[in-house]
Nucleic acid binder design. Structure first.
Length: 834
RNA sequence: GCGGAAGUGGCGGAACUGGCAGACGCUCAGGACUUAGGAUCCUGUGGCCGAAAGGCCUUGUGGGUUCGACUCCCACCUUCCGCACCA
């Protein structure tokens, strides 16, 4: 047709976005009549521009959200901004702009991109964590934790990033460097800091992971388990020889090997060391070695590859054997884990083995692995296998498994130890010496000490006029109007805490706020949370596997203890999407390899961008950006547009053709074939959304269906217009989650009003989707030798008979003897010959 | 070192519980339409042999199980990710 209209994504997209907004299409409120579905993508940090790396996350989420909308779910799909954080302060320093201004202008830009992509967010629920209306509840939660002893101030060794000029939580240290500055080794400092006692929840965090099995990626669960690092063993106290009032404690998971201990090793910064040196003639020499080693240890980035140590000259007594053991300082013993001291069993621990071989300490085998008789003198490596105890006093002959329990119990009986469980997880240090964060609601009073700010004084407002400077202490300390206050208890002059909270506090509970975003009396209404929670599907990057995802699980449990929520886990299902790469590396502003999302929308339209994100790779794998591939997706959408356009013009000429074909005369073969392909594709796409989320082959199937229509041109000669109409309607519906704007436009072209956002998602007709003819592969000795076409459901013998009758197959069988036949109904016949 | 994931055409990737390897897209080639085509439509496109029919080879490597293996088992190689003195 000469007056063919071309696909104009920009016009179509603007039209439907306006329409959706006017109709409040994606606003969701509790509705007892429909099942709820809470779908969430991790909230973005407003860094400036949204690039296609970000968009992948939202394209996946939006496809699922729209599918659920179409299926009749009441979908809660919100978005907000993780808007506190250091980059805003850096921008302030570099461009002399206030962090708030920088942040808000970024939010405006990014929101414009999200709107340009037409995502199905309920914007009424938008939140921004840097607003007092939000962060006052961070303070409120802090106070509730303070009341319960879950927020506490303590002096401890903390990680210090010299770039950020602030403290980092353990979770924020990656390979000994800052998570934001991968080349900057973290330093160690002793500071007084606020901590949240996440360690009180170690066991619950671990146990409740059973509820997440299957719904969360296995590797995330593994990473969290390793991070919590539970290990069960025993604590044993070794008295100092000659002074039984003093002792050194060790933690061990292998108390069954204790008769093989030939030394006791302590960490270089063990608190009892100075006491051991005191009064010794060689004290100066010892302290010199000690200081050398400590300097090294204080820089965790320079982890020594080689084990070193020195003999303190002190002796302790093995409480089991009475044997005297030398006390050594060893650089590989960690002061933060266990008791900061270990028993050294060289025969059964590789680290101890290397240490003892280096320094000539004896090696003694006290557990013989099954079927072995090892000797310490000739041992080439430690053996950590369980076995039978040897040379172990009264325990000799016991199996390791049994000895572990019995010896720990005996240590308890003897009053020198007992069973113990340790964790790797440390308390969460939340103090940050930075400006752009939530002020910690504490006041220091000369007479009352640390006093919590009363609830009715919240929020403690972050002052606007602050000279942001990196100087190792919080910029807030330089704002007298902020610092100087009065004690809430005694009304005397007092000083405010000037550190702000780690921004991971903000993101630990934000998804509850979405359920009741404007509440000014509580963080949220428990009833609203109860309605929407738990989150049915959470989507985000793997980089939060332990940071955000363990903190928010902790918050949920804490909130449950406060009576705010009634579930143990906030997120039922988690999906980690792959990264978008360009030139083999992740797209990022700092690498300068980003493809701005707005560029894609302007050039191809956002529907094309979305389809490309879902088509180019499975959603959990990394995706390499390709300018050529996205062209292909653009072409595909144009093809669909032209197909429907042509059909709708013809229908307009004779509107009767629009009436449904149901009840019409039986379908012709060509019509059946068209309907069959359509319903097969529909089945595939439906199953995929409900199951594996392999959108790439799903979209491939839709493309194939479109090719099918093109291959039958001119369509109207092979099928009645009503049948074509029916098939195109299904095609349009199944395209809707992927290319929603185009789908709504096509839906209108097909004569329907109001778009497809709320469905319906069509049910596929199993009858129509069934093949009535099958192409059966005929193999001879496993090699394909022919094909036969048969009707479905043939008996095995009949299938074999027809296979043997095929002339081509027969020619291969000449002079051969059939040994056996294998039949897969409707699929395959394999003839085994000799 | 330990744990996990992965390895398929020129490229991105399909192949669900073992059953025609390479769907779909990109690239490239040819054709049609056209004043024109970098638009559109059609055809072809893993390698080798062959004019063709057809045959042989091919899913990191080597073995095994099976009528039949990308898929299961064993060993090895490579890449990526996580943990890494956690006692």
């Amino acid at each position: 047709m000469s007056d063919q209209v071309e696909y104009n994504p920009q016009a179509i997209e603007a039209k439907w976005q306006k329409e959706w907004e006017a109709r409040r299409t994606f606003e969701a409120d509790p509705d007892p009549g429909r099942p709820k579905y809470y779908l969430l993508e991790m909230l973005p940090y407003p860094s400036g521009t949204l690039h296609m790396g970000h968009m992948r996350n939202y394209a996946i989420g939006d496809a699922v959200a729209r599918f659920k909308f179409m299926r009749g779910f009441n979908v809660l799909h919100p978005l907000g901004w993780d808007s506190f954080g250091l980059p805003a302060e850096n921008a302030a320093l570099q461009h002399n702009i206030h962090p708030r201004e920088w942040t808000n202008s970024n939010i405006a830009q990014m929101k414009a991109v999200c709107r340009r992509f037409g995502f199905s967010y309920d914007w009424r629920r938008e939140i921004s964590t840097c607003e007092p209306e939000y962060y006052r509840w961070n303070q409120w939660f802090f106070l509730r934790m303070y009341e319960r002893g879950l927020a506490l101030r303590k002096r401890s060794k903390v990680n210090w990033c010299p770039q950020c000029q602030t403290v980092l939580a353990n979770e924020q240290v990656v390979d000994g460097c800052c998570w934001r500055h991968e080349d900057t080794p973290v330093e160690s400092k002793e500071l007084e800091q606020w901590f949240l006692r996440i360690t009180d929840y170690s066991d619950r965090l671990l146990e409740d992971m059973n509820q997440l099995e299957g719904g969360w990626p296995a590797r995330v669960l593994t990473m969290q388990r390793n991070w919590i690092g539970k290990s069960t063993g025993a604590r044993v106290r070794f008295p100092v020889a000659g002074d039984r009032s003093r002792s050194l404690e060790v933690f061990t998971t292998r108390i069954d090997t204790i008769y093989g201990a030939t030394a006791l090793l302590v960490a270089p910064d063990h608190p009892l060391l100075p006491g051991l040196f005191a009064g010794r003639p060689d004290r100066d020499v010892l302290e010199a070695s000690w200081n050398r080693m400590r300097r090294h240890i204080l820089r965790p980035a320079e982890l020594a590859a080689e084990k070193t140590g020195f003999d303190t000259g002190a002796l302790v007594e093995n409480p089991f054997s009475g044997e005297r053991l030398p006390v050594w300082v060893a650089n590989f013993v960690l002061s933060e884990y266990g008791t900061g001291a270990v028993m050294c069993v060289p025969a059964h621990d590789q680290r101890d083995f290397e240490f003892c071989r280096k320094y000539g300490l004896p090696v003694r085998v006290v557990v013989q692995p099954p079927g072995a008789t090892l000797r310490g003198e000739t041992l080439e490596a430690a053996t950590s296998e369980y076995g039978r105890l040897a040379d172990s006093g009264p325990y000799t002959g016991l199996a390791s498994e049994e000895a572990l329990g019995r010896m720990a119990a005996d240590a308890a009986k003897g009053g020198f130890g007992g069973p113990e469980t340790t964790y790797r997880l440390r308390d969460w240090g939340i103090s940050r010496q930075r400006y752009w964060g939530t002020p910690i609601p504490i006041v220091y009073c000369g007479s009352c000490g640390a006093v919590p700010v009363p609830d009715d004084h919240l929020p403690v407002l972050l002052p606007a006029a602050v000279a942001v400077a990196a100087g190792g202490r919080s910029p807030l300390a330089n704002v007298p109007e902020f610092v100087n206050t009065t004690c809430p208890k005694c009304a005397r002059p007092a000083r405010r805490e000037t550190d702000t909270m780690d921004t991971f506090v903000d993101s630990s509970w934000y998804f509850y706020r979405y359920t009741d975003p404007r509440n000014d009396r509580a963080p949220f209404d428990p009833a609203a949370a109860r309605h929407w929670f738990p989150i049915d599907q959470y989507i985000g990057g793997i980089e939060h596997a332990i940071l955000h995802l363990i903190y928010s699980r902790f918050f949920c449990k804490m909130m449950r203890d406060l009576g705010l929520v009634d579930h143990a886990e906030p997120v039922l299902r988690l999906f980690s999407q792959g990264m978008v790469l360009k030139g083999g590396v992740a797209m990022s502003k700092s690498r300068g390899n980003v493809v701005p999302a707005m560029d894609v929308a302007e050039r191809y339209g956002c529907d094309t961008g979305r389809v490309y994100m879902l088509f180019a790779a499975p959603p959990d794998k990394d995706l390499e950006w390709s300018d050529q591939s996205i062209e292909g997706c653009s072409r595909f959408l144009s093809r669909v547009f032209r197909l429907v356009d042509r059909h709708s013009r013809q229908s307009q000429a004779s509107p009767a053709n629009r009436s449904p074909a149901a009840g019409a005369s039986p379908y012709t073969d060509a019509e059946r074939a068209l309907l069959r392909k359509t319903h097969q594709t529909l089945r595939r796409v439906t199953d995929d959304f409900e199951g594996r989320w392999h959108f790439n082959p799903s979209l491939a199937a839709v493309m194939k269906l479109v090719n099918e229509f093109y291959g039958r041109e001119p369509l109207e000669e092979c099928a009645r217009a009503q049948v074509i109409q029916l098939c195109l309607e299904r095609l349009t519906q199944m395209l809707a989650p992927f290319a929603p704007h185009l789908a709504d436009e096509l839906w209108e072209m097909l004569g329907h009003l109001g778009g497809l956002a709320h469905g319906p998602w069509p049910a596929y007709d199993p009858e129509l989707a069934t093949e009535d003819e099958f192409q059966v592969v005929v193999q001879i000795n496993g090699r394909v030798r022919g094909h036969i076409v048969v009707e479905g459901g043939l008996a095995d013998q009949e299938l074999v008979r027809r296979a043997l009758a095929d002339p081509k197959v027969a020619s291969f069988l000449e002079g051969k003897q059939v040994m056996k036949t294998v039949v897969v109904p409707d699929k395959l016949v394999n003839i085994v010959v000799r």
